[in-house]
């Protein structure tokens, strides 16, 4: 192959500049000027609308607008005024640039980013000279001790962050539930008897505490329970787990074992619990086994019984940590 064969097409160069009407026609230029001015004036009207809406439209006025539905009038017209005011300044400026400002394309030369060889050589020489003068190359003791202290000084700010929070210790394994703690409804804070719950029903439950009005979100985030009643013969549980139920009533932690969302959707017909966050699906009769979705563990089951007055109470604390997994979690 000769070079001729590989020769590309020729660059015809920048095409000749095509002039716009307003460049040579004074009338067109004047028209363009008027158009720009109209756009700017529209913007001014927008600001007037904005000020009017702010001062004169009542805060409790709602108006019906097709498609949008009922709208808060003040916020709608404030917004529209603001939008008009801003948009038309921009539209005017762009129209001005496009019709009246010079549209001649300019060519500028580029230069390679790399410095010239002399500059690079001079730079390297300077660095060598300076480094030599400081004596970093020879004085290795200084170099190493400096590296050590620079490395260590980074620890201080990290250490300062230590007091951001307490150490986890055993906190994640503990909940308020313990033997004899009453189950109360959430909301309502009423104790529950087994007969309050029909077959197929579900109740949202928290542990009874002395001052329910001061119940912290931290405790709710671990204590929340789902109480579900099905027919006792529908359970497919081992003897121990079955003994944790009471007359077909079974209690699960409501906090998803995947990422801690509230497992709040119960499908009565299929007896499935569904977490709306990531769709982990738990099967109630088999002890909330995961039948679909990303969760790797069943919801922890709480052992329940009734006390001498006939109210539902916890028979024991949870036998495992509730909520999402963590490194120290025991199997």
């Amino acid at each position: 192959m000769s070079n001729k064969e590989l020769e590309p097409l020729q660059d015809p160069g920048l095409p000749a500049h095509a002039h716009r009407k307003a460049d040579h026609d004074e009338a067109a230029a004047n028209r363009a000027e008027r158009q720009v001015a109209i756009l700017f004036l529209l913007s001014a009207l927008g600001t007037v609308l904005f000020i009017y809406s702010y001062i004169f439209i009542e805060n409790n006025l709602y108006i019906y607008i097709p498609i949008l539905g009922n709208q808060h009038a003040q916020q709608l017209f404030l917004g529209l005024g603001f939008a008009i005011a801003l948009f038309f300044i921009g539209a005017g400026a762009v129209h001005w640039a496009k019709t009246l400002m010079s549209d001649t394309e300019v060519i500028a030369e580029r230069h390679e980013m790399r410095s010239s060889d002399e500059d690079r050589a001079a730079f390297i020489a300077t660095v060598k000279e300076e480094a030599g003068a400081v004596g970093l190359g020879r004085r290795s003791l200084i170099k190493r001790s400096l590296a050590l202290s620079l490395g260590l000084v980074g620890i201080s700010p990290l250490l300062l962050l230590r007091d951001l929070g307490p150490l986890p210790e055993d906190a994640l394994n503990k909940t308020t539930w313990d033997e004899g703690v009453h189950l109360v409804t959430d909301p309502g804070n009423r104790r529950l008897r087994p007969e309050d719950l029909e077959v197929g029903a579900v109740a949202h439950v928290l542990p009874e505490i002395e001052h329910p009005e001061h119940r912290s979100l931290n405790s709710i985030a671990k204590d929340a329970l789902l109480l579900i009643r099905i027919r006792p013969e529908e359970f497919r549980l081992d003897a121990e787990k079955l003994s944790w139920t009471y007359q077909g009533i079974i209690a699960f932690s409501k906090i998803c074992s995947h990422m801690g969302c509230a497992v709040a959707l119960y499908e009565q017909t299929t007896k499935h619990l569904l977490c709306p966050c990531h769709q982990s699906t738990f099967d109630v009769p088999t002890g909330a086994k995961v039948i679909f979705g990303p969760s790797a563990r069943p919801l922890p089951q709480l052992a329940i019984k009734v006390d001498e007055e006939g109210y539902l109470v916890a028979a024991a604390p949870f036998n495992q940590a509730v909520g999402p997994s963590f490194w120290e979690r025991k199997k």
Binding site: Q75, I84, L86, I89, A91, W96
Partner: peptide, 20 residues
């Protein structure tokens, strides 16, 4: 002029969205 104008256009469009 184009870039400055465009800033106002973007702001205007965002304000319109915020309004409706």
């Amino acid at each position: 002029a184009k870039a400055g104008g465009f800033l106002f256009i973007v702001f205007g469009v965002t304000a319109f969205l915020g309004a409706v």
